[in-house]
Design a protein around this nucleic acid. Sequence first.
DNA 1: AATGAATGAGAATTCATTCAT
DNA 2: CATGAATGAATTCTCATTCAT
Lengths: 174, 174, 174, 174
Amino acid sequence: MAAADRRTRILDAAEELFAVDGFDATPTARVAEAAKVPKGLVFYYFPHKIDLLLTLLQERLPTPTKDTLAGVVRRGDPAGSLVLRTIIFRESGTHPEVRDHLRQLRRSLVELTEAALDQAVEWTVAKTLRRQAAETFVSVMLDHANARRAGGALPDVQGAAAVVALAVGAPRLG
Amino acid sequence: MAAADRRTRILDAAEELFAVDGFDATPTARVAEAAKVPKGLVFYYFPHKIDLLLTLLQERLPTPTKDTLAGVVRRGDPAGSLVLRTIIFRESGTHPEVRDHLRQLRRSLVELTEAALDQAVEWTVAKTLRRQAAETFVSVMLDHANARRAGGALPDVQGAAAVVALAVGAPRLG
Amino acid sequence: MAAADRRTRILDAAEELFAVDGFDATPTARVAEAAKVPKGLVFYYFPHKIDLLLTLLQERLPTPTKDTLAGVVRRGDPAGSLVLRTIIFRESGTHPEVRDHLRQLRRSLVELTEAALDQAVEWTVAKTLRRQAAETFVSVMLDHANARRAGGALPDVQGAAAVVALAVGAPRLG
Amino acid sequence: MAAADRRTRILDAAEELFAVDGFDATPTARVAEAAKVPKGLVFYYFPHKIDLLLTLLQERLPTPTKDTLAGVVRRGDPAGSLVLRTIIFRESGTHPEVRDHLRQLRRSLVELTEAALDQAVEWTVAKTLRRQAAETFVSVMLDHANARRAGGALPDVQGAAAVVALAVGAPRLG
DNA sequence: AATGAATGAGAATTCATTCAT
DNA sequence: CATGAATGAATTCTCATTCAT
């Protein structure tokens, strides 16, 4: 219990710090400090630094769902795990395992969006257009997540939803 | 001129290495090695490592032009400076100066796209829609550049162009 | 008895691992793992790592016997491990107890060899020569054991036996 | 010059410490300290700890010569440390390069001893016996060096020389 | 008696940066 | 101007040992 608790605290700290400062720029010592555990304990649970990142991805990155999508459109924000996606973006260029997660995330988002489009319109949308529309929207979602990390002005996800809806002739998307 | 040449070689090497491995993961020694100059010379021209990155941004990141946009739509590829944008994305979360560059890049791309939309359609597009359409397209462009660095499947920029064109009622965009 | 069993398994594992990888290069955790006991138990029975080695010395290093010697000569191999084990100790040459054991082992091997020589020849060998011959042979035995760890070509123990036998004028030694 | 000097001091310190305490038991920090250079400099010249050992091997391990052998026999001591140095290498029996050096050293010592035997006796010694005699003597030399590290009683190298000489029928060896 | 979580003192190694020449 | 030797703070990781339960 205390044990699980401390492991959790370590992951919490890592998530926060990796998102803010980046994986490479975050010494394990700082993770330990933020988690208020001794340095050795971090390596007890996560023998290599990269294991922290991988564990975060495996245990905390939820598979996108219909709700995810709805949340994105409604609030312009991909629900809870935005922080983790932030991390994914940053590190995917460097760590292959992370890259795979990103690839998968994109694919499942596209599929989900296609399904959402199908439900949103009453008529049949041409396959190609549907795919293009879905990919466009997913790009905006990902760009949004990425921009949030990068700290610039955030793209307007709802606006994109409107644009895409118009393109497929639907009144609204979501 | 030999001097200018060596300085250029250093920047070339830095650009390449930063793009591939990331800024933090690239020791200055490796830049020197790749540029075939002595290590001391790198610090002679760029007293601090970050100066390499900043100089790259200032001297080599072109302001987007109409041609940029045309190139993106036509070839689905943001012209020459993709590499630098790669760097921008990766480092923007960590280095404030870099973040500013990214912000500016996005803004000028949006403005440019709005202008392009105006030219592409014969009638007047509602301001809000035009802005949303432009932002959507810029998101796709940036997502494309980012995805290229991350190494996943590349989003379909031309498809996005088609979607956006449809949304604003234009036959084609570009 | 379960207890005795587990203690034995720990010593077995330690002996094997120390012989193969060396004392310093073998973490106690690996001993525990190899013995299939929890890590804490190793320290329960052997409060300090060195105690593993010392116990091995005291409980498992048999006093060399005539049979030992015969085995060495006949098979060119230090029967089962007697000498091989000495290698273990050499590792921690800094530890006084270990050094003492090693010294003693050498002495008793020399004495044994002298006795063997006496039996092998029918006439009396000069004391000095006998001692020199015995020491020579013991050196070869120990060098053999050492070389085995180091992984090089093994010295020819039987050849050495022949040489020594010739020197003291005996037809054969062993 | 100052540079070469400091590099030399590092190697001197390493040689001394490795011989006394062993390779594994000697932190690079202690080498630096003994050489009176900053820790970083050790890694500047020898990027990995093992390089210290390898360099010692390549630069300081002389090929054994006739004089070596004579010294060994005459003073019962491996002239200056030739063999003593080999002990260093035995430490890191896991490193292939080190093992190779050790193997080679043994071989060249055996060859040298065979040549010495040929010169020492007037008649022809049978090939097999000569080889056995040489190997025996080399084993004693190596065991001597080893025992020195272990700190026990030193085997009598001159006695071994006498034994070997007797075996091949020569009055004296060396 | 038994154990696995916890700890912290090192260990090797990296690297931006300085500076004497 | 140019350079490569020099530096030391920082970083990841290891492991013997302790101890609460």
